[in-house]
Amino acid sequence: MNLTLKIWRQKDGRSKGQMVSYKVSEISEHMSFLEMMDVLNEQLVNSGDEPVAFDHDCREGICGMCSMQINGEPHGPDRGVTTCQLHMRMFKDGDTITIEPFRAKAFPVIKDLVVDRTAFERIQHAGGFISVNTSGNTQDANAIPIDKHVADHAMDAATCIGCGACVAACKNASAMLFVGAKVSQYALLPQGQVEATERVLSMVAQMDKEGFGNCTNTGACEIECPKGISLENIARMNREYLKASLKG
């Protein structure tokens, strides 16, 4: 198929960017979106132009590196997939596809479609962990019985790959689905209880400090999340936060 691509080009964080149009031809419908971007970049390199910078790593939907706002939606029009899992068969011959970086004040553009998502890492550093002594006396995980449903909910929350699609999709650029998932995966398990109060207060404080917006429950994040993280996690974080605030 032949396509027109309108891509955000920005030299670096300080430069002003703009949308630039490119034509690509003979794109197979079996290609992934990133493979299509590779074709474009080969074309650009061959003609002596600067290739489009975009994030990618595992290319199998696990690492959370690939981003891109495609036709107004993070990771494009398909559901439950990352950009690397998005197939070109989702588009038609002759389509014009708009490709922009994930937009948020907390995700500044580094170059073209690459954004700095270390705000998520700083939120994780603020409390997204448990302190376990691994000096050899660690208790076997199976020695602590956990209800199957609870374990499943924790696992569901833990499938968050931190790609930032929730922030990109949200009209408020809110990171609450990400933080909700990270808080939930520990809040649900006994191992997470020791630091529960401090965790939620610190992570929410860091989230606010980074400049993410507020959740207004539009539900866009849940729909666009490649891992299907549920809004239930935001409610759980709100509960945990209220509980922690009352405890002081």
Partner: peptide, 13 residues
């Protein structure tokens, strides 16, 4: 919330 996205998308679905 408006400040949290300093630059708006050209295309927002």
């Amino acid at each position: 919330n408006r400040n949290a996205r300093a630059i708006n998308y050209k295309s927002y679905n």
